[in-house]
Design a protein around this nucleic acid. Structure first.
Lengths: 334, 334
DNA sequence: CTGAAAGCGCTTACAG
DNA sequence: CTGAAAGCGCTTACAG
């Protein structure tokens, strides 16, 4: 069932059918009604390949969301979309698996669809360095910094992850903690975790307290089980820890369980902190102290920058948004 | 940059370039090497629209995952993929927003890509009734029943949601609970929630206990905040509840927080149960009693059925998998 | 092993 | 307002 079949059935030419498909003018009401009826009857859906192949016009802004389970990205998408909508721009979002190469995917998408602009929620600067030069439309990396990459068309908005982790650790230190363990961040190391870890370690060492990566740090995957196991391993080899800083809320959530399973309590025996202010830290019992990335603000900033790039030809911008320490119930003063 | 440019640069015809793109034989090693080099240099990615438009051959099995945050679906995908891989079938997964019409999306996908088969993780039987007749390849609905729809090419695998909810409520009743509240299930009502609610209510009434929907039930959206607020409202108007059954784990997670915020404890003051056995119920403090849908088994069954449909022309099958009551720490005996 | 040509299903000037 | 025709970038017989 293609456009020619519909045209034949309706008694019109394919040009006219195409015009009604695309809601274009210059179609008589009679023709429009008739063709709509036939399309409905046949359950006709235009072939999108043929359509996009032919259409040289640009398609809506595309957002690529890395990692399907990430709550923060979901929270950013709303304000992002709203801001775009205020400027009459639509947004189509594509979810990518954690292990996908987002830039290659974006290149293929660009060739197929010609989007007006692209947004990357998450995404590894490394991939951008390798292949972003093939991307021809204004883009913005959200939640990571592309400032050092120097691409003409790649903006970014992020928080200062290093400073935020430092801030959180200082909070722990101010509450009297001296033996702090850190969990999270994959072995291969992505930009974000690396920065958070660096900030945390710097804060601790700045107080003249020793931090031995091999002993006091435990990498793990970004999910509950990862946090659970990392906390167990860390606690197994460090009987004297008074606080654990998890580089992400999901990890903290798993760690909380591990701590309780050891017969310990948070924060009475061990203080715990997370990062991102997702529902895990908001709803956990006890609620977990964390760093809030202002999803609302990140989303709006990303949209604003992209809009300026697209409409006014503004140059790439790199915005560093504020973060906020959210003190809750999981850290106690020693 | 298209295939013709590459051909010209490499000094070959487009046919030869196409053959190397598709890893076909009948290309000299010399030509292959040269063309690969040129493609690499240019960062060439074939236009997928043109490609799929032309290719009449079938593309890999497609899975549509409804609702990006659903943990259960993520757990089903792994075994599903593995089973398919054992039969040498690839799987490409597409994530759809909660409010998308999955069947329309699948029709468009089918027209564009000609997949060998399709899988729907989640998905509302209502939409299938309306439009599934336009789908021409074997498909299976996972996590919902399509048995009553009677489509020749639509199989399904699910658990008996009604029986499972009944089982869970009986467990509550056996532990002495008589005043049980239920939360979850949108106002518009999807198949799954409706069945779970029906099963739960039936179990309660079977004991001669009255259950007043308007008083003892509170619908809510499928996220933590929904569960939190629903539990508050329910508790506000029912001071005598001893147990709450949330129609999903995320909802239970939100409800747990609401209960604690009222100065009550789980399970000492209020018993709590969820549904799905996701990480929320597994890692919460206390761990939440729930119903386990065996994701491993659902995934493998779905793949097995689809494979039989595709390879052996087997008719549509409707499998009802087992469920399991997972007793944990959130229900106490009165 | 290689190239020239047809055609996938659309959209878009162009002519009427 | 409508239709005939060109062409988007590929793949795939077909001929060499």
């Amino acid at each position: 069932m293609n456009i020619r079949d519909i045209a034949a059935k309706a008694g019109y030419g394919v040009g006219t059918v195409s015009r009604v498909i695309n809601d274009q003018p210059n179609v008589s009401e009679q023709a429009r009604a008739r063709i709509l009826t036939v399309m409905e009857e046949c359950g006709y859906e235009p072939n999108s390949n043929a359509r996009y192949l032919k259409m040289q016009s640009q398609t809506p802004v595309a957002a690529f969301v890395m990692g399907v389970g990430n709550r923060l990205f979901g929270d950013i998408l709303g304000p992002l979309q709203t801001t775009l909508a205020e400027a009459n721009e639509d947004l189509v979002v594509t979810y990518l698996d954690d292990d996908a190469d987002e830039v290659r995917a974006a290149i293929a998408y660009q060739n197929a669809r010609h989007p007006k602009g692209m947004l990357f929620l998450g995404g590894e600067p490394r991939y951008f360095a390798e292949a972003f030069h093939e991307i021809e439309v204004p883009s913005v990396l959200v939640t990571g910094s592309a400032a050092d990459l120097g691409f003409e068309r790649l903006s970014s908005v992020t928080i200062d992850n290093e400073a935020a982790a430092r801030c959180l650790c200082e909070h722990l230190l101010e509450h009297g903690h001296r033996r702090i363990g850190i969990i999270g961040g994959s072995k291969t190391g992505n930009q974000t975790s690396t920065l958070r870890l660096a900030g945390a370690v710097a804060a601790i060492r700045a107080r003249g307290i020793s931090f031995d990566i091999a002993r006091d740090y435990e990498p793990c995957d970004f999910h509950e089980a990862g946090g659970y196991e990392a906390a167990q391993r860390l606690l197994d080899r460090n009987g004297d820890l008074t606080a654990i800083f998890a580089l992400g809320d999901v990890i903290a959530f798993g760690a909380l369980r591990a701590i309780v399973d050891r017969g310990l309590r948070v924060p009475r025996d061990i203080s715990l902190a997370g990062f991102d202010d997702t529902s895990f830290s908001q709803y956990a019992v006890p609620r977990i102290t964390t760093i809030r990335q202002n999803a609302e603000q990140l989303g709006r900033a990303a949209a604003r920058i992209l809009l300026a790039n697209m409409h006014d030809g503004a140059p790439a911008a790199h915005e560093v948004g504020p973060f906020e320490l959210i003190e809750r119930e999981s850290v106690r003063a020693l």
